[in-house]
């Protein structure tokens, strides 16, 4: 669905490239996470893929279209949810969605259905200018689905949302994924990426450092330890066991058999920890 070969992009001819010779592919139906801290080159890459930035160097094919040749009809297949909400403040939520729906040549979704889906029921006739930041963000997210996109660009889809709404957004993304929608998710939130993505790419200083599935990364970079808290002689004891060491495995089995277990956690690495391990940099 997306093919990028040797993409580079410069904002200033004498400056450092925002994106430097990156290559990757996204399969149809896949949710691909593009992860990195602010200024890493995520938005630049998405800008080129969506056509908002002109392709300077490299080959980029998106949804069957070569982005070096501007063809606006490709957007019939594409949905874009921006990090910064961008809706018409003087139009109501419903008017906003209905306006955009008319700009597509394909069958579009019902505005009210999308409003309900993102939890804005009852606000359809309220002008978007009166919405809170989170509500505007949800409306922007809803708009990105108006044309039933085959390829969906999601830029920080849960940023600034409260946990309940963020969970709703994640459910919607998963539901779309189940329908076969391909998603290109740009985020610096590793937990979102871990939950939603089939594969992730780590980008830093305009270069991709690694691409793999979250599961493989955890297996490769996780410490393979188990932390256990248990009661012994009325006192709480805490021990760490190596799951790759046979003696430790036997000892862990013994503890589970003989003692009252208070807590037990596998010490698999989070994506964030792996990111820091791989890139040597944090995500903020």
């Amino acid at each position: 669905m997306i093919s990028v070969k040797n993409l580079s992009h410069l904002y200033n001819k004498e400056g450092k490239p925002a994106v430097n010779n990156i290559s990757f592919e996204v399969e149809k139906g896949e949710t691909f996470g593009f992860l990195g801290p602010s200024g890493a080159g995520k938005s630049t890459t998405q800008g080129v893929l969506t056509g908002l930035l002109k392709l300077q160097k490299g080959e980029v094919n998106v949804a069957g279209y070569d982005v070096s040749h501007v063809q606006n009809k490709r957007f019939n297949k594409i949905g874009v949810s921006f990090e910064q909400s961008n809706v018409y403040g003087k139009l109501t939520a419903k008017e906003n969605l209905e306006f955009y729906a008319k700009l597509f040549d394909v069958e579009t979704r019902d505005a009210q259905e999308l409003i309900d889906l993102v939890g804005l029921s009852g606000k359809e006739n309220v002008r978007a200018g009166e919405f809170s930041k989170g509500m505007k963000h949800r409306l922007t997210f809803a708009r990105s689905m108006i044309n039933n996109p085959e390829l969906w660009f999601l830029d920080e889809p849960t940023t600034g949302l409260d946990p309940a709404i963020a969970a709703t957004i994640k459910d919607i993304i998963n539901a779309q994924k189940a329908k076969g929608t391909t998603a290109f998710l740009t985020t610096h939130n590793m937990y979102i990426a871990d939950e939603l993505c089939d594969r992730v790419a780590f980008i830093i200083d305009g270069e991709i450092k690694l691409i793999d599935t979250p599961k493989n990364l955890k297996l490769k970079y996780g410490q393979k330890l188990v932390d256990v808290e248990y009661l012994e002689g009325g006192k709480t004891k805490k021990e760490t066991f190596k799951t790759i060491d046979e003696a430790d495995r036997n000892k862990l089995a013994e503890v589970i058999k003989k003692h009252d277990i208070q807590t037990m956690h596998t010490k698999e690495a989070t994506l964030e920890e792996i990111f820091i391990q791989v890139t040597g940099r944090g995500l903020v």
Binding site: G51, L52, N72, I78, F82, N86, Y88, F104
Partner: peptide, 9 residues
Amino acid sequence: TINAVNVTP
């Protein structure tokens, strides 16, 4: 909103 219009046909 210009960006939003720019990603339509």
